[in-house]
Design a protein around this nucleic acid. Structure first.
Lengths: 208, 208
DNA sequence: CCTACCGATCGGTAGG
DNA sequence: CCTACCGATCGGTAGG
């Protein structure tokens, strides 16, 4: 589908940083994200991506330096967005339990609102070069650390269950993130409803 | 390391199904599991696997029909083992809350005890052929269904928190499984300790 | 279980 | 952003 070449304006090096070029970049990333999610990074060729958009492989090199740059760009946005949202919640003037709850709701939301990109993040980011993988890992650690610090403070105040804070943080975030594996937009629950229920379950525990 | 060829007995088609052949199969799978986990399926070549053991690529074709067969064999063991252990717990003569707790402890344990294989399972199983992926997915569904049925029964009896059973099941199992992403054998906690703490947190909730 | 080798795929580049 | 093309990798096979 959409295999016709647009007879539109030649981009040319001139507007390589113009707004039209930004749109093209976004379009390439969007298509790459969907294909990487569906088939995996290595099973998706640059030809696949280019064809899906309606032009040829070398065009991609006009906007990106190589295949790995596509993956990196996708993955980078995911951590940065998660980090940004977590930061905003952690500093709120609320009881720690409430902040942790809000944080888990928000975390599930951000995952489900960007399902393709998040799936690529969790499935393919290990394929990045060691240097880039490290950069991503550092930012992810920062994000985990944010939640861990909150948890430690909550235990000290007697607001949270006293288990190992690393276990608690990883497990709670993991439970939230895991939604990317089973959530379907055509299911009975909206992403917001899922986010709420997940957070509720983790806060209250399953035991009645 | 271990790059010397063993000058041992030629296997030959004769003992292709003998005990020595089974050992070889297991060895190949074990090496493949470690490499697939570390570098990913597509980044690991059959030459890599063969070299690591100390012979050449065609030898692998003496024991397996192709690269994908290696992945399938690894992944199959993982679901089957999980399914087997879950079945044994679900039928116990215990209160549902206790069975759910035991089940989560056991689930985390089985993941952490076979970290390499489970990591491959969750990261690479999407690369199987559609037919094989379906087979794995069916067995995984059976396993999820087991836990879901237990949850539904628990809610009816008033023993469990009344949230959507699919959300509950997926989230609880996900939280447990997620340990494969952050657990390290050289950390302060043993896999058994982690398994207990995860299950405790999920049962009681983080709120004090 | 080895040597030798083929065919296809694919990321990337030249040159415009 | 296109045509044409190269080089390397790699799964798989022949033939022993």
């Amino acid at each position: 589908m959409a295999r016709q070449r647009q007879a539109a304006r030649r981009p040319g090096p001139g507007n390589g940083s113009g707004p039209a070029a930004e749109d093209r970049r976004r379009q390439i990333l969007s298509v790459a994200t969907a294909l990487f999610r569906e088939h995996g990074y290595h099973t998706t060729s640059l030809d696949d991506i280019a064809n899906e958009i309606g032009f040829t492989k070398p065009a991609i090199y006009y906007y990106f330096n190589g295949k790995e740059d596509l993956l990196y760009a996708i993955v980078e946005v995911v951590v940065d967005e998660a980090l940004r949202r977590m930061r905003a919640i952690v500093v709120r003037d609320q009881p720690i339990v409430d902040r942790l709850h809000a944080l888990l709701v928000e975390n599930t939301r951000v995952v489900l609102e960007n399902l393709d990109a998040n799936t690529v993040f969790y499935n393919e980011r290990g394929l990045l070069s060691p240097a880039r993988e490290r950069q991503i890992r550092d930012r992810e650690r920062e994000y985990t650390q944010l939640v861990r610090d909150l948890y430690v403070a909550g235990v000290e105040k007697g607001e949270l269950l006293d288990v190992d804070p690393t276990v608690a943080t990883s497990t709670l975030l993991g439970a939230s993130i895991w939604a990317y594996r089973w959530f379907t937009a055509d299911g009975p629950l909206s992403s917001d409803e899922v986010a709420e229920q997940v957070a509720e379950l983790l806060m209250a525990g399953y035991r009645r």
